[in-house]
Computed example of a mutant assay.
Amino acid sequence: TLNRDELIPIPRCPVHKPCVNEAIRLFHSVLPRYSEIQAVRYVQTAKQIAIVVKNRELPETGLLTEAFAEKLASIGIEGVWLHLFPSSGKKVFGKGGWYLIWGKEASQDESGLWYGPAAFQQLLPVLAGEALDTALAFLKPDANSAVIDMYCGTGSGLKKWTQAGAKTLGTEISAEALRMAAMNAPRAETLTGTCRQRLPQMEKWLNAIEDGFTRLLYVNPPRTGLEDGIAEWITLFMKPVRMAYLSCSAGTLSRDLSILCKSEYYVDKIIPFDFFPQTIHVESLVLLKRG
């Protein structure tokens, strides 16, 4: 038998924040029929909303009247996008096809970080901030440090490393996330693409830094862990003095640590963080030193 997703309508969901329930209610009242717009997903990232449309051309909706926009603004929404993604399925977002149809293209969170409609945000931002501050205290970046931040996202870590005075380079596959990272940490250098694709540029960046700088590394990979060859590159070429690894999968973390710890690295501390309460997922911040 085939497993198929089942969509269950949950009006006024008790888990959502009130502003999310109200925004969904508003859009439900004005969105055209599916045959007219083919809207397949509603994605809300705090103050930014994206409607994913299974189409190649921008539909004429007329839904964002001045009165409707005023209602959105009254509940704190700052931007509304249509994202054209003809092959939308399991994957939420495609490449390109973003159209801002009302409001601002970016918003700021409670800590002043800029984010867009496709940004990932932690459910518990205070706890995520605590994990990052713990990594900061362990890495100890300063004006005599060179930090590489792999999978840097929208630049929350880049901002901390550059504020501490360190030379900083971030890598991230999402161009949208890096656009926000440039706003959040303008003094950091960034590379778009996978870490494996950008190894030559990372090596060139490290080689251009003067002798005597302390090499530091922060990695926050997806559930699949470090890409093939990255752990080996860390131990054979970069050789950071200290490294912080924030993992969302115990399985891939164990795999990567087995490679790192076969070299000169040892685990100084492992700190669990319950970023997703009432689920089986527990993230772990691993602090490693070069022996």
Rank of each mutant, 00 (worst) to 15 (best):
A181L: 02
D228R: 10
G251R: 14
L260V: 10
V53K: 04
S174I: 07
R223G: 04
E110T: 13
T168L: 04
M183G: 07
E227N: 02
Y151I: 07
V80N: 02
K269P: 01
D274K: 01
D274V: 11
Y266F: 08
T171P: 02
D211E: 11
P86N: 01
S263F: 15
Y99P: 13
I173M: 12
I10Q: 11
H83R: 15
F237G: 10
H28F: 10
G153F: 04
L63A: 09
R187Y: 06
D256L: 02
V267S: 06
E172V: 03
L123S: 14
L178C: 07
S174H: 07
W98N: 07
L285I: 03
P11Q: 07
I148M: 12
G112C: 05
P125G: 11
A188L: 08
T190W: 04
K95G: 13
Y34V: 14
V286S: 00
R187W: 03
E189H: 14
L63H: 03
Y99C: 10
V15E: 14
K160G: 02
C261L: 09
W102H: 06
K269I: 03
V52G: 01
L226Y: 00
G153W: 03
L124Y: 14
N184I: 00
A67G: 12
A143R: 13
N55P: 05
I148R: 10
P186D: 01
I10Y: 06
V40E: 13
K71A: 06
V286C: 01
F275M: 12
N3C: 15
I37D: 05
G76M: 08
P32Q: 09
G103F: 06
L257E: 00
S88V: 15
K47Q: 13
L169M: 10
G94N: 07
L123P: 15
W81Y: 08
E227Q: 12
A188Y: 02
R198F: 01
F68W: 02
K47R: 14
K90T: 11
Q197P: 10
L191E: 08
A119T: 15
S263I: 04
R196G: 09
A185G: 02
P125L: 04
G129C: 08
W81I: 05
L217C: 00
T235Y: 07
I280M: 13
S254M: 02
Q278N: 13
D211Q: 12
K47W: 11
A137G: 08
A135M: 03
K17G: 09
L100S: 05
Y34C: 02
R4D: 14
K204H: 10
Y42S: 09
D149Y: 01
S107L: 14
S29F: 09
G225F: 09
G251M: 11
L191T: 09
C19K: 12
G193W: 13
S74K: 15
E130C: 03
L100E: 03
A106M: 05
L199Y: 00
L191S: 07
A67K: 11
E78D: 11
A188S: 03
K54W: 00
E110K: 13
T252N: 08
C152S: 11
R41L: 05
Y42L: 12
S263Y: 13
L246P: 05
T214C: 12
Q201W: 05
A106V: 15
E227F: 02
L288Q: 00
Y265G: 00
I271F: 01
S156F: 05
K54Q: 14
P32M: 10
L226Q: 04
G212H: 00
L31W: 10
E227A: 07
